[in-house]
Amino acid sequence: MTTAFLFPGQGSQSVGMGAGLADAFASAREVFAEVDEALGQHLFKLMREGPEDQLTLTENAQPALMAVSVATARVLKREFDVDVAAASFVAGHSLGEYSALCAAGAIPLAETARLLKTRGQAMQKAVPVGKGAMASLIGPKTDLALAEAAAAAGAEVGVCVVANDNNAGNIVISGEKAAVDRAIEKAKELGARAIPLNVSAPFHCPLMQPAADRMAEALAGVTIAAPTPPVVANVTARPETEPEAIRRLLVEQVTGRVRWRESVAWMAGEGGVGRFVEIGAGKVLTGMAKRIAPEVESLSLNTPEELEAFARG
């Protein structure tokens, strides 16, 4: 069966994530130790014990989520002889794209951890607290056309764009607070529910340009190899293996839309994927994949028991 591995993004973090893997497998402990050393902080202790408000900080959540995903991939390979390289594609949601690239051999683990620490700090600093906002548009009437119309209404008073096209019924808008508030009103008029998100900054919108500039600097000094398998990029929703294109897309991703619905639909359609496997913390992407491509098997691997069952199956 053709498989694509999916790597979760921010919001999937929780205190205790990765602890079961670390307790069961030396290969997972190696990953967490290497990330701690690369960052010069006790990140795994924070992941295991909290406090939650510290783990949720963007600069901590991003490398932490990557560490759990890469630890899961390493355990799969080392303990169960299941290699990400044998899959058809990898894809990650926002920061998860870095996890995917690391697991596919494109960027070394320590470098990936440092890049995500920088990315988290840069995204946090790009917009003063309170100036930006994000909102989730949900419900059966919510589709991309509705979200675009709501964002256009918001854009009449400030920056407002569609940030995450997750799946039909779940689309996120981002921008200046007054503009997002106007977009929320419009979305409700059009029949969607709109929920303001408790986020520290307006991600994936033009206000993040300072963070994109910072990531361009950081990525310029990084050697990127061709990933095996190809990564389906957030910005294009198509597979990519060329290192310089990947570098450019990672910069564009900071201000650009996460085209997740299109990415999963492409993999399930033209890509011929018959199974989506989410590896890392939580099950958010598994739920999205089931809604986007219900005909394709979708599952998540979090625990030692799930990894063993997957390897046997």
Rank of each mutant, 00 (worst) to 15 (best):
M1F: 09
A4D: 08
Q10I: 08
S14K: 14
S14V: 09
V15M: 11
G16Y: 12
M17R: 11
A19Q: 10
G20R: 13
A22K: 02
D23T: 14
A24I: 12
A26H: 09
A28S: 08
R29P: 10
R29N: 08
F32M: 10
F32I: 07
F32G: 11
E34Y: 06
E37N: 08
A38I: 07
L39G: 10
G40Q: 04
Q41F: 11
L43A: 14
L43E: 14
K45T: 15
L46Q: 00
E52Q: 15
D53A: 15
D53S: 15
T56Q: 13
L57V: 09
E59K: 14
N60Y: 14
Q62A: 09
Q62H: 14
P63R: 12
M66W: 13
M66S: 12
M66P: 13
V68W: 04
V68S: 02
S69H: 11
V70S: 08
A71H: 04
T72R: 00
A73I: 07
R74P: 03
V75A: 01
F80M: 03
F80W: 08
F80E: 04
D81M: 00
V82A: 01
A86Y: 02
A87V: 05
F89C: 03
G92M: 05
H93E: 00
S94G: 05
S94H: 03
S94W: 03
L95H: 03
G96K: 08
G96A: 05
A100P: 11
L101F: 13
C102F: 11
A103S: 15
G105H: 09
A106Q: 07
A106G: 05
E111W: 07
T112C: 15
A113E: 12
T118I: 15
T118N: 05
R119Y: 04
R119D: 03
Q121K: 15
A122E: 10
Q124C: 05
Q124P: 07
V127N: 04
A133H: 07
S136K: 00
S136E: 06
P140E: 10
K141C: 01
L144G: 04
A152F: 12
A153I: 07
G154I: 11
V157I: 13
C160Y: 08
V162Y: 06
N164P: 07
N164G: 14
N164Y: 02
N166L: 04
N170V: 02
I171S: 06
V172S: 03
G175Q: 06
A179N: 06
A179T: 14
V180I: 12
D181P: 05
R182A: 15
I184H: 03
I184E: 03
A192P: 13
I195V: 15
I195R: 02
H204D: 03
C205S: 15
C205F: 02
M208N: 01
A211V: 04
D213W: 00
R214W: 00
M215R: 01
V222P: 10
P227R: 02
V231C: 14
T236V: 04
P239V: 08
T241G: 01
R248D: 14
Q253V: 05
V258S: 02
R261E: 14
E262I: 09
G269I: 02
E270K: 13
G272A: 11
G272Q: 10
G272E: 03
G274T: 12
G287F: 12
E295D: 15
L301Q: 03
L301H: 03
T303V: 09
P304R: 06
P304C: 00
L307I: 07
L307G: 10
